[in-house]
Design a protein around this nucleic acid. Sequence first.
DNA 1: AGCTGTACCTGCAGGC
DNA 2: TGCCTGCAGGTACAGC
Length: 286
Amino acid sequence: MPELPEVETIKLGLQKYLVGHKIIDIEVKLKKMLQGDTRLIIGSKVKGVRRFGKGLVIDLDNGFSLAIHIKLTGQLIYRGPNAPKDIHLSQEKVGSVPNRWTHIIFHLDKSGILYYNDLRQFGWVKIVKTEQVSNLPFFKELGPEPPVLKKDGLTLELFKAILGKAKKVPVKSLLMDQKRIGGVGNIYANEALFVAGIDPRRKASSLNEKEKDNLYKTILEVLRRGLKERGATELNFVDALGQEGGYQRHFLVYSREGKACRNGNGIIKKIKLAGRGTYFCTSCQR
DNA sequence: AGCTGTACCTGCAGGC
DNA sequence: TGCCTGCAGGTACAGC
C-alpha cells in the first residue's frame, strides 16, 4: 500500500520534475476524481510539493493547491522535458500512459504532462486554497509522523503516551490509525511488529517499556528501509516517473503467508485483524 | 465523543 | 473452459 515511504518517493520525484511547470489545461476524464474548479488553477505555476502522512500537496503560485490522496492504487506520473531519458516505466503496473485508468490529465507548458491514474478510483484530488489545506479533514486530523525525515513529530515520549491510552485497541490497529500516528499503513505496521517481536493482536497499552522502546525503533527502521528502496510496489505503486519500488523484495512477513519465518522456527500466519490482512509469526511474535 | 461496520471500486484467485 | 463469487484495502461516513 502506498504509505509514508511510497508517498515520499512520489513527492521527491514531483519536486524534481514538476516544480516550475505551468498548468496549461486540465482534462478530467472521470469527474468524481477531481473536486474543485479547474479554472482556478489554469495558468498557475507549480511552486512546491509537500507531504503530510500519506497525503500530498502540490502548491501553486496563485494561492491555490492540489491536495491529493492516492489511497490504494493512485499514480501520479510525469512526462516531459525534466524527466531523465533512461526511465524504466513499469510495464506491469502502468504499461503506457494515458491508459484506461487515467482519470485526470494535467497539460503543462514545455510539453510536460502529469497523469493521475487510479485503478480502484479510491483516491482524491482537490483544488483548494493553500491556506485551507490544513483544514481538510484528512490533514487536520492527521496524527504526528514517525521522525524518519524530520526531527519533530512522533517523539518516543509521545509514542508511549499514545500506546498507553489505547486500552482496547490492538497495537497494529493503533499503528495504522492515521489520526493517532501519521504515515504508517498495513505493510510497515506488519513489518515493524515482526522486527520488534510483538504479536499484532496485543492491546497497545499492554506493551511494557522495553517493548515500546523497541517498537518505536523498529517503526523508524522499516520506514527508513522503505525509503531507501524507493517504496514497495505491492499493489500498484510507482514513482513519479512510473517506476516500481524495491522494498517488496525485502518483506519479512507481509504477504508471506505459509512461508518459513526468517528468524528460523515458525511459519508465517495470516489472520484478519480489524478487517485488515495481518501477517505474523506465532513463534517469535509474542 | 468515540467506536464499529460498511461503502467505495476493480482485478484477480479460487471453485465448480 | 470460463463463468461466478468473494476478497483485498485506506479512508469517509453512517449509525450506534
